[in-house]
Structures are given as structure tokens and as C-alpha cells.
Design a protein around this nucleic acid. Structure first.
Lengths: 159, 159
DNA sequence: TTGACATCGTTGCATCTGCTACGTTTAATC
DNA sequence: GATTAAACGTAGCAGATGCAACGATGTCAA
């Protein structure tokens, strides 16, 4: 027989998904996000896009959608929608920039600030725990990710 | 003044999203997936869930939805829906397992095998290129991911 | 045997996502 | 100054996703 297998077709090339980097990264990202979500999504009722916008606003005062888009790896429509939801929940405030009226300034409301005052320390603790748990491997992961992200061009924003 | 900033609120804790591992992993996963998608999604018209199912079927003959779920980091409804689409495109075949009629056996059709015979070498080449491009950093990334995935419990399947 | 329980896979629903086209505002060109 | 082009943010639409509930089948124990 030789080249044929039982079902009568030539064999396909070997390929192990478990060593395919895009797959591994996707799984790792999903796992960490899920773990995290159990901590803060249930508690604060915010999604990941919302969380990213909030974090950015937490240490930059008034910021436009476009600013966030670039710095937080989100498309502008994601930012726009996250901002809408956050505004609806009273966590941020949107205001047209008077110097350039195409821009919308986003800023935390007092309620939003309160929430972030609680959330940020939790996130930091989470990160610290992760680093501690991983030990040496954390530095390796970091180095690997840094190189990877440096190599791969982000897709340029579209509209 | 001291503890207060311009806007009259106490400052929030420092927090840098760019060094937050869940965020970095999400960005890395998104970038690599996008890069990959440009190669094969446009060319073969399959999504990531579909790709995962196909890869698994490529080296395991008849397999149930549940088998795939466990080994490919997908929820069973994702597998179910991906399988539906693949069946509609004629790439796989679904058949009720006669020994246990709750199970559905999935298998590549000849058309599906042909496609995978083309796709798998492309994926391997892609992986090889990535490893070459990353050099030493690849081993680091791998080590880091291995430790991370070993530490974090996958969420148990629900239904 | 039969009745309770577990497993498998699918589906309805609400929401989220990605894409594109759009209205508005500003900048550039003549 | 008027016309064109660009930048910004939003919204409509189709499709994907997550969740929970369901029907069908199989297992186990009384």
C-alpha cells in the first residue's frame, strides 16, 4: 500500500495546530480575557472595548475618538460604540470640541472616576499575580511579544 | 495644591495598558490573525472557526463535535455552526454515528481534502516565516505561552 | 422495565462585530 | 472666496457570537 491510507486518499501534510503561533496566541488571549472578565466584567458590567477606552481616559484628560483609536488598538467605530455605551451608563461624558468641531472630547464623569479608582488597582493586582505566577517565563513572554508586535505591521485605519 | 490635579479630582492610580498582559496578548492575537487572514481567508473563503475544524479533521478521520470542542479550544456551538457552514460549502460531511446516535461524525469530503492539501503547506510556510523572522524571540514567546497556558485553567464547557 | 439523569448537538434570541456609506466640519487648492 | 478634498465620528446592515434552553439519545439504578 504505502502512500495510501485506509480511506484511499493520499495523506495530507502533517500540521499541528498546537504549535501554530496564531492559534496559540488566540487561545492565550481568550483564556486571559476570560479569567479577567470573571473578575471585572461581572462586577462592573463593562466589556473589553469599554475597558480599554476607560483606561485610556483614566490618565489622559479630554481625548478624541481618533486619539484613542491609535493608542488602544481599536477601530474608530469600536471606540465610537464603546463611548456611546459608556455615556449611556453615565461613566463618561462626550462633548464637541469647540476648537475643531469634528472632534468629540471624551472624559470620565465623577462616577466613572470612582469606578476606575476601584478598577485600576484590581487590574494591577491581577497583573502582579500573573507575573508572580509565571516567574521567569513572564520576561520571556514579554520579550517574545515585543518582537512579534514590532515585526507585524498594524493594519492601517480605514475611514 | 499637592494631591489634587487641575480638574479638581484626586489622581487615579497609574496604569499602563501597554504592559497589561491580557491586552498585549489580545493585540498580538489580532495582528497575527489579520495577517494570516489576508493570506487564506480571502483565498479560500473560510473563517477561523472553520479553519480550526478543518485542521483537526485533516489528521483525524471521523470525529465528533465534542472531540473537536475539547482539542481545538472552541465551544461546542462554535464547532456546530462551523461544521454547518463547512457542510454547506461541501468541504465536510456529517453523518450520525450509528454506534451512539447522539454523536455526529465529521469528515472531510474529497473537495475538502483537496483544499487542505493546498492550505496546510501554506500555513506551515507562514509559520516557518514567522519563526525565522522572530529569531531567538520565538523560543522565548513559545516558552512564555507554554507556561501561561499551563497555568490558566480553561473554562469548563457548559452544556 | 421504567424513570431519573447525563450527554450530545442544535437553535432562538439578543447582542456584538466588521464593513461601508454617510453627514458634518475643516483644510487645501485654485 | 468658491470648489474639492480630507478628516472625524456615526449609523445601517448583514453576519457572527455568546448564552441558555431544547429535543433526542444513551446510561444508570431501583
Amino acid at each position: 500500500m504505502g502512500a495510501m491510507t485506509d480511506h484511499g486518499f493520499p495523506p495530507l501534510p502533517e500540521f499541528d495546530l498546537a504549535h501554530f503561533t496564531p492559534y496559540r496566541l488566540a487561545v492565550a488571549a481568550k483564556r486571559t480575557s476570560e479569567e479577567l472578565a470573571r473578575h471585572y466584567r461581572a462586577r462592573f458590567g463593562i466589556s473589553i472595548p469599554e475597558w480599554r477606552v476607560l483606561v485610556h481616559l483614566a490618565h489622559s484628560g479630554n481625548v478624541s475618538v481618533r486619539d484613542i483609536e491609535a493608542r488602544v488598538a481599536m477601530e474608530k467605530y469600536e471606540v465610537s460604540r464603546a463611548a456611546k455605551r459608556l455615556e449611556d451608563s453615565g461613566l463618561i461624558e462626550k462633548r464637541v470640541n469647540q476648537a475643531d468641531r469634528r472632534l468629540v472630547d471624551l472624559a470620565l464623569t465623577p462616577k466613572g472616576r470612582l469606578m476606575m479608582a476601584e478598577l485600576l488597582p484590581m487590574a494591577r493586582a491581577h497583573q502582579d499575580a500573573l507575573e508572580a505566577r509565571m516567574g521567569e517565563a513572564f520576561a520571556q513572554l514579554e520579550a517574545g511579544l515585543a518582537k512579534l508586535l514590532e515585526d507585524i505591521e498594524p493594519i492601517p485605519p480605514k475611514g
